[in-house]
Design a protein around this nucleic acid. Structure first.
Lengths: 145, 145
DNA sequence: AAGATTTAAGAGTATTTAGTCGCAAAACAA
DNA sequence: TTGTTTTGCGACTAAATACTCTTAAATCTT
């Protein structure tokens, strides 16, 4: 069950990494993140550009440049990131791919899929980068293979 | 949020259509299904071959040939179909794509993803083709755009 | 037996997603 | 002001997914 594209997965992992570095001042270079998480530098760069353009990250060029969260990790939620990287309609898709599937013209699995999507969306809505970062730090979780 | 591949979506829609035709005797031709559901004939054929090879369908060639469910629609569940078309490990994937993510080596969202997956899997497990077919017939639902 | 109908199977094409490369632009350092 | 570091951006390549086409095999009809 592949729910998120590679770009989104990489972006999420990278942002959680940033959240674990909250005590550092200044910017964290993309090169460092790419190395630590074993993600292609150029691919990561593209995802970060999207996140910068959408207000999640702040970037700075030149020596000691890099990226940084544009607001406290407590105020950035999974849903924000996914909406930017996957599109605003991420949680509006029909399981059977039928266009316009909804209350008025449902597909045969609309009822249970609606509930499942709502539950998932809620989790994405309340889970912050800070929470995930703390989990990684406290429980020594990994962010790469 | 694309959860199922096109092949699986087409297969599901086609099987539900078959379930709505339970009063007909004999085989239903792939050509008819392809036309009724507006799905490419050849593409559908490949998916049906997989389903035939895995015991969901029975097929017969020649005039008045076609396919038919290999057992009562009451005994075929969404989960059976998805497992065949998407792979047995469909519900075992990590949201962040980390290999070996599980209780022992979880990712930062493993806990809630595990719960969400289990709930979904349960729905897939208890929803039969008969149930979906009846819904389509009774509530006059559509199976194509 | 010959021709028509229908699934089986594999090769080939197109589109989407994933990943790479090279160079421009910004900022710093000597 | 020249060279170095770092992000920005567009073009390019590769791989996966989706789709099409052709031919073979099975079965029926006449």
């Amino acid at each position: 069950m592949k729910v998120l594209s590679k770009g989104t997965v990489y972006g999420l992992r990278a942002l959680v990494y940033l959240a674990t570095q909250k005590d550092r001042t200044g910017y964290v270079s993309i090169g460092e993140i790419s190395e630590k998480l074993d993600i292609s530098f150029h691919f990561l760069t593209k995802t970060f550009q999207t996140l910068t353009q959408n207000g999640i990250l702040e970037s700075y060029r030149g020596p000691n440049g890099g990226i940084a969260l544009n607001k406290p990790a407590e105020q950035i939620f999974l849903l924000d990131i996914v909406k930017i990287l996957e599109g605003d309609d991420f949680f509006d898709k029909c399981l059977l791919g039928l266009p316009g599937c909804g209350e008025f013209e449902p597909c045969p699995v609309h009822d249970f899929w609606k509930v499942a999507k709502a539950a998932l969306k809620n989790e994405f809505e309340i889970t912050s980068l800070a929470e995930m970062g703390a989990k990684v730090t406290d429980e020594r979780l990994r962010l790469s293979a």
